[in-house]
Write a protein that binds this DNA or RNA. Structure first.
Lengths: 315, 315
DNA sequence: ACATATATACTCGAAATGAGTATTATGCGG
DNA sequence: CCGCATAATACTCATTTCGAGTATATATGT
């Protein structure tokens, strides 16, 4: 039994929304691919995993995390290579923030750079029909046997078939990974096999280690949670118009919502309250500025933003 | 910086339902408290965390895990004590099974032994009014300052106040832990402070290490997932009556459901199909035996068992 | 004044939900 | 063999929620 030691890596997907653009904080870790802020967990110094995370994030980004939530622990061999003889088990976190100042070495990047197929706000991304589905069709055909092919077909259908489920971000990324459609797959298998496979397709911008997988998990979780917990509030300025709130939710969900119904929902749920003040609009009637109601923020038995998804024409 | 090393512990809450009793597989680990099957992760031998888990569970229970799902990774100092100088970070899993044969050293135990306050099927557990709320009121009063008291009051209200949310199992357990109402709290603080604090209240049966916390997470997750994924099917015999299915869901949720509406839901969703055969009832009209529809099992864009919770009188 | 753009109010039908009542099929005690 | 208790299953109904849309109000720029 070779003595391989374990090390715990902590990574954070720190998310913010500026206008219509959901973004994530990346650090230029070693000039290579984009990376999430991360570092090893030091059990001697830290009482909890989360405090370890805060320490790293603080050092790398001078950021003071607000809302944080653990996502998942990944331990697969070969998806987070470190020094030989050490296995990195990485614990991913989601953090929400208001995009204040950040440190020199960091940068906000729109998360759809990494997941261009996830943004359905304007139209269904053309790459799905033009690139993804044909490649996945090939992936199905290349299955080792009929049973595996049927399984793959099902997965493709669930992930990219009719009935878009905006929450299946991770499932989709993993499918593309296994199908060899993201750069990480070729990089990881080259490292594992010690031979460089010929580089295949590369959808979206790759990230360091398994960071894109962590980000996928973060987006999936956030999209899910939006619907039953008031998490958007962590991302908004102290006051905002209802349209701004809607645009933020849309940006995160990657979908357009029905305006009138959206405001009905947030109103009914008592999520926000008017301030009596109005904004100075570029065009059109001024909109009232709202704020979140403190009461709701301390998680009640209650609600988030149920997205009133729309199925027909314009806003 | 003292060289403390990390070790990863894998634990599984293996859940089954027999009739009306949801239960979890426990092992008699060292005669002491009940424990979940668990063991350290060996990076040299295992490619993934889950395969490591399957190995341990296989060895300790001769069980072949079916459906498994990662729950959470706990790393707090002092809640899973091991050899000095090693910090155990424990990754908890949920597994669902049909309660077949088990190994000698193991035993199925009803999970409400550990969480008696979570079973609302017959009535609201009296212990909530008689024991828990008075003790928590004291916990609020003992807060170091007014702000902390307000926070505690809110938590008590969300967890045990009006509007029972059956999913907040973990929140409730953690609150009781912090309030010193479960044995684990006194055990852990004695270990940390090296002095044995006077033992306080002890609600429910305690477990080894942080296993009760992992079980709480498992129940919470399962109760949540019931509503939007067909997970019960992992727990049912190949064929079953609709009432048996309902009883299983009720057992897990700790709530009673409205019979007619329950069958409407599962029927509409196409979750099950009749077999044409009927059971031999002790009393009453014989019930048709159903089975789950294969199609639905490969997670569709779709449904689980939305619980048609009832708010008035009898079944 | 009017075209344009946005905010906000209100309407309407379809579907989902909660809560029943009604009917059907058994076994059993007389 | 009748009638009753018991459970399964069918059907009803009011209410709420949801998706979709129309209507009206209030700005700006020309």
């Amino acid at each position: 039994m070779s003595k391989e030691t374990v090390s715990i890596g902590l990574s954070a997907a720190i998310v913010a929304v500026e206008g219509e653009r959901p973004s994530v904080l990346v650090v230029a870790h070693d000039g290579a691919a984009d990376a999430l802020p991360f570092g090893p967990f030091d059990p001697a110094q830290q009482r909890t995993l989360e405090s370890g995370l805060r320490k790293w994030v603080g050092e790398q980004t001078r950021f003071d995390l607000g809302y944080t939530e653990q996502l998942y622990t990944f331990g697969d061999k070969g998806r987070h290579e470190a020094a030989a003889g050490t296995r990195v088990v990485s614990v991913g976190y989601l953090a929400l923030t208001r995009q204040g100042k950040e440190a020199p070495e960091t940068e906000w990047r729109g998360w759809y750079h990494y997941f261009p197929w996830e943004d359905w706000r304007d139209t269904k991304p053309v790459m799905i029909e033009s690139t993804i589905l044909p490649a996945l069709k090939k992936f199905v055909k290349d299955a080792p046997n009929a049973e595996a092919a049927e399984l793959r077909r099902e997965r493709v259908n669930v992930c990219f078939g009719e009935g878009w489920d905006e929450e299946r971000v991770l499932e989709r990324y993993e499918l593309l990974y296994e199908a060899g459609l993201v750069e990480e797959f070729w990089r990881d298998s080259a490292l594992l096999n010690k031979k460089s496979a010929n580089k295949g397709a590369s959808l979206g911008t790759p990230m360091l280690y398994d960071h894109r997988r962590i980000l996928a998990t973060a987006i999936a979780r956030l999209r899910g949670k939006l619907k039953y917990r008031p998490v958007v509030c962590e991302l908004m300025a102290p006051t905002f118009t209802l349209l701004e709130l809607q645009r933020a939710v849309e940006a995160l969900a990657g979908l357009r919502l029905h305006k009138q119904n959206f405001r009905r929902l947030v109103a009914e749920q008592g999520l926000v309250e008017g301030t009596g003040k109005f904004n100075a609009p570029v065009r059109g009637r001024p909109a009232e500025l709202f704020r979140f109601r403190r009461v709701v923020l301390r998680e009640r038995p209650a609600p988030g933003v149920r997205l009133g998804v729309r199925r027909s024409k314009a806003s």
